[in-house]
Design a protein around this nucleic acid. Sequence first.
DNA 1: TCTGGGGTCCTAGGACCC
DNA 2: TCTGGGGTCCTAGGACCC
Length: 421
Amino acid sequence: MGFLGSCNKERGQGVKGPSKDFASYILEPLNPRILIIMEPRIILHLDMDAFFISVEQRDNPLLREKPAAVCGSLSRSVITSATYEARPYGIRAGMSTQEAKRRCPHLILVKGNHSKYTETAARIFSLLRKFTPLVEVASVDEAYLDITESLLLFQSPHHIAQSIKNQIRKCERLTCSIGIAPNKLLAKLGSRLKKPDGLVVIKKEEVGELLKDLPVSKLNGIGPKLGEALNSMGIFTCGQLGKFPVSILSDRFGIIGERLHEMGLGLDDRPVVPFDEGEDSKSISHSVTLEKDTSEPNILKTVLLQLSEKVSRRMRKDGFYGKRVVVTVRYSDFFTFSKQKTLSRWVNSGDEIFKQAFEIFEAVSHPKPIRLLGVGVSQLKKEWYQLGLFERRDKKDSLLKAMDRVNERFGDWTLTWAGLY
DNA sequence: TCTGGGGTCCTAGGACCC
DNA sequence: TCTGGGGTCCTAGGACCC
């Protein structure tokens, strides 16, 4: 979840979850920020070190102490995680596997096994809940913990962090880096400062000195474009950003101008939102880069069908219906666009999603061979949501669930909709 | 030799309704 | 005959994150 992206929504809703005690209900309508100001928090950010490849190294001794990396597929793919031994060669996440091989010919590539990483992550996250119920899962390999209240039970923030590290090392044979600070922005920054196996505590009184010469691009939420824009205004460090007039930042960046200013000062009032209080997904999508660029209609149609099936299966598994179908197309020259369509009814079956996706796809004439196709559904509602008064879905739903069971057991595409093969 | 896949949020313009 | 402004939904595209 991006910092800039999420701040508005969360601030707009005031203090969520963890801080919703009696007092907050009374104070919230007056000013949602009052509580935040009253509350010196201690936030811990945990980031697994080179997570995917570390899991692979743990399970395969042949990979240990060697330059190795996890990638999506062995051809046309990118590195998703590289060992610290591979990094001196300049190998980083996001780099194409071919470029990585060029830089380090003896690099060992491992095809990623996502379910293994999710299962490992789930065990780690449940371990974290022993320290506080306020655990926010930020991605598959990182989490925020609000340990403010936990200090009544544990000696110090440092002590909590060390216990977490010890337990993860003992139970999972993996290392992580931890940052502890008064807010999420700084905790996240801290966890990055001494990777791997780091532990950094940032005290309130140290923030100014730390940020003074820190490049703005080091902050979570300032990517290449924003960084460049800030640099062009003569703002290179967080210290400069914090001192820069807010009015100019707001004129230039609109709604995020004020947030940028706060980030420069190391301020951040986003709450830690525990998993079970988090919001539902807003979209579900799948995309695939084809083995070879192609304009062959039958291949493209089949891929769209498979992607639609995959999306619909996830939707049913998570209990969603959706109203908007999105198709993404990337041509051989990397030009990428998406087209969407909002439906008048809720859907979650592969054939319905495919029908819409194919219509969207066919409405455009494609001038170049296609490299990537994606299908997504957004405007999601949970299954129990009103589906329309007179819709009779029972029969179709049970058929779909039966198909899902078969596919789960025997592998993808054992059962799918007829008509294309 | 190129450049994955899954998400979130924001903006801007147009349609439509009141 | 000439005319405003607010609200909401839809679509496309961009930035950012891991």
